[in-house]
């Protein structure tokens, strides 16, 4: 459970896989992978700011990408990075919806050990699927 970076896919970018017993846990692990790609000590991000958003997509893969891209948006536009996520994911009438409450703080180069900027989530070798009793995802992040 959690996430793991993959070394042998897209060597100029960052690939990861994530697993969880629940879909919400999977999205949370993927978000952790995204933030950890940029900040080595991401667990030290203080949860002092909260943002809430809801996203709707026609399929689960698109929802997964849209969720991670929303976090990139907050990093670029508001300078916010997160490590606390409260998520509810539902499928109703052929539409996938994620409601998210994300907690974090402003990027701070003095405090956060910065690595490299993530600018997009690619569709390359993207997997978001049920596996056994849980959920599995694989994604390549554009650097």
């Amino acid at each position: 459970m959690g996430f793991k970076f993959l070394n042998d896919i897209s060597i100029s970018d960052i690939a990861f896989e994530a697993d969880s017993g629940t879909l919400e846990g999977l999205f949370k692990s993927a978000a952790d992978a995204l933030v950890n790609s940029m900040i080595r000590n991401y667990k030290d991000i203080k949860q002092v700011k909260t943002v809430e958003f809801t996203l709707r997509e026609s399929n689960l893969e698109s929802l997964f990408v849209a969720f991670l891209e929303k976090l990139i948006f907050y990093k670029d536009v508001e300078g916010l990075v997160f490590n606390g996520f409260k998520l509810v994911i539902k499928e109703t009438d052929g539409e996938w919806v994620v409601s998210c409450k994300a907690k974090g703080e402003k990027l701070n180069a003095k405090k956060h050990e910065l690595i490299v900027d993530v600018k997009a989530v690619t569709m390359h070798l993207l997997e978001v699927e049920k596996k056994g009793n849980g959920w599995h995802a694989q994604a390549v992040l554009d650097i």
Binding site: I9, S10, S12, D13, M123, H124, V140
Partner: peptide, 9 residues
Amino acid sequence: AHSGYGSPI
């Protein structure tokens, strides 16, 4: 050339 996504770099 090296691996990218979609097309190689």
